[in-house]
Design a protein around this nucleic acid. Structure first.
Lengths: 233, 233
DNA sequence: GCCCGGGTTTGCGCTAGCGCAAATCCCGGA
DNA sequence: TCCGGGATTTGCGCTAGCGCAAACCCGGGC
């Protein structure tokens, strides 16, 4: 494992405003690793030996119920920390991290966290802000699940994905990683059948365009309308 | 506002293992306040001027949707910090804190947080652990809402309440604060009608006993069975 | 170029649970 | 003690969306 170049992480959220020397110190304790698409970085309930930063790729964070149902907690994008719930008290990962595409990550041993946090307060702050944001966002999802119906939830999920991972194309905004109907279903608490029906309907209306593992939003505005209004035409 | 006695908070989670002097310093920046049942300690979207510790009572944390639906995020019990998402980056409260009964709270100005956290690392740690726990728990609720059906969700909610606020009575375990069918509905994403029907059915089977704003669990074991098994007899 | 397998679409029937409405109950105040 | 209003219960009809099943489509490996 070669020595890591600080340009990898300079300017990324968690390491914002660290001096070059500080960056080197932070990197000194990290190792980098590649994971192939569909491999997991860590598994639910496994002992939390490391925490991670995603350098490149896209990671799906999944929980599995005792019944075997899967629920996607969130997608992680470039520059985001993940596996950090572990850094805060937890000794075990609460979910599985699956690579939606080939990924490059940095990993720090869990023990390093307290030390880094103490030495670089802005790093600690950023971590906590991240966790705070996720709590916030997760609570919004609870509210959604409790009050909106499937159509609205799916619309919201697609909009969120586009915002997080939208790539501009001539057609519209395309989600830049492969995502199946099943995935959307697991994000919104419904079935792939229902998602498929909804996307088909929206495609007929020219709101989205979808293909195998691919979704492009043509008319975000009308999708927002769907996500807000109860019932639909 | 008289000076506060450190015995109020000695030994409480967040202030565990602080020296008497440290406790005094922490208390020096707090003020205590009483809130009547059904009054709010803070409102959603209001500016986060303070964070709080509940000394006595029970607080319902509620979010309201643009459509006017309410969702109960959680209940806060004695000795718990609340309104702290604000202490971590947020400048505004993400939810409303309503008193389910008369409450006594300690309040610190938001500005004091960074200072206290820096001076008393164990306080900071405890806060973060609390937030971590809540993230965890909130995610579990997302999973529940996505995969279980109402009967199971309501059973889980009741069990959780009993665990958190159960008082032993000759009848069984009684939830020690007034809680309506509507409240349970807002915790589980259903309607008061459905909750009422479920409780009635369970009462017929001798699993729970319920009255106006009151629920007593007679047979926790059978309730757990309901919460785990799909479909029911 | 052909075949295989996973992703997707679509039809169909069914039911969990919502929405509405009405009756009842019960606590607390006058 | 009587009364008003919120909490609860219960009936009834309806539909959103699930579950099952079958067909289809398409990309990649051989």
């Amino acid at each position: 494992m070669a020595s890591l170049d600080r340009s990898l992480i300079a300017g990324l959220g968690p390491f914002d405003s660290l001096t070059p020397e500080a960056l080197d110190q932070v990197l000194a304790r990290a190792r980098s690793a590649r994971y192939a698409k569909d491999s997991s970085v860590f598994e639910e309930n496994a002992e939390a030996h490391s925490f991670f930063l995603l350098l490149d790729g896209r990671i799906r964070v999944v929980r599995t119920t005792p019944h075997g149902d899967q629920v996607i907690a969130r997608y992680i994008g470039d520059g985001e920390l993940f596996g950090i719930a572990a850094a805060i008290g937890r000794t075990t990962y609460p979910a599985t991290a699956m690579c939606a595409v080939d990924c490059v990550v940095l990993a720090w041993p869990t023990e390093a966290w307290a030390d880094l946090a103490a030495r670089f307060p802005s790093f600690a702050g950023s971590t906590f802000r991240t966790i705070g944001n996720r709590l916030q966002e997760t609570q919004s999802r609870v509210v959604e699940m409790a009050t909106e119906q499937v159509g609205q939830r799916v619309a919201l999920a697609v909009l969120r994905l586009v915002r997080q991972a939208g790539r501009k194309t001539p057609e519209g905004l395309e989600i830049d990683f492969p995502i199946s109907r099943q995935d959307i279903a697991e994000m919104t608490g419904t079935t792939l059948h229902t998602v498929s029906r909804l996307l088909s309907a929206w495609e007929d209306e020219g709101i989205v365009k979808s293909a195998r593992q691919k979704i492009t939003v043509i008319d975000p505005h009308r999708l927002m309308v769907i996500s807000e209004h109860r019932a639909g035409a």
